[in-house]
């Protein structure tokens, strides 16, 4: 077993996904199978190989810092907000 239910729970917490007990069981099984399948990658000799960071060979385009930018129309900013008050998006109160 590469991972157990405890690890699945930990990952789910990191990914902020609520899982039922049933789902924890299933995903633990799935993830184990998938990770086992990935084990074969260890056969590949990657000594002195640089990891890929991007597959295009472009030069990164850099935008001008112009002040007359076109902003999103105001009514569109909060158009899809699940919960809002005035111009603000809102979430349940966070206690620091």
């Amino acid at each position: 077993m590469l991972i157990d239910e405890k690890i699945t729970r930990k990952i789910a917490t990191l990914a902020k996904i609520d899982l039922s007990e049933q789902e924890i069981k299933e995903y633990t099984k799935d993830l184990n199978n998938i990770l086992k399948w990935m084990e074969e990658l260890k056969e590949v000799d990657v000594s002195n190989i640089k990891p890929v960071t991007s597959i295009t060979e472009n030069k990164l385009y850099e935008r001008d810092d112009i002040s007359h930018a076109i902003y999103v129309e105001q009514e569109k900013v909060l158009l899809n907000a699940p919960d809002k008050v005035g111009d603000y998006f809102t979430v349940p109160k966070v206690i620091e």
Binding site: I3, K16, I17
Partner: peptide, 27 residues
Amino acid sequence: DLNEMYCKTRGEGFGKEVKRRLLIGTY
């Protein structure tokens, strides 16, 4: 609280395969 909002929203909003891949990716 906020954390529960996140977890429930994403737990309910995403389907089974998406959640599976998010778990792999996070791991």
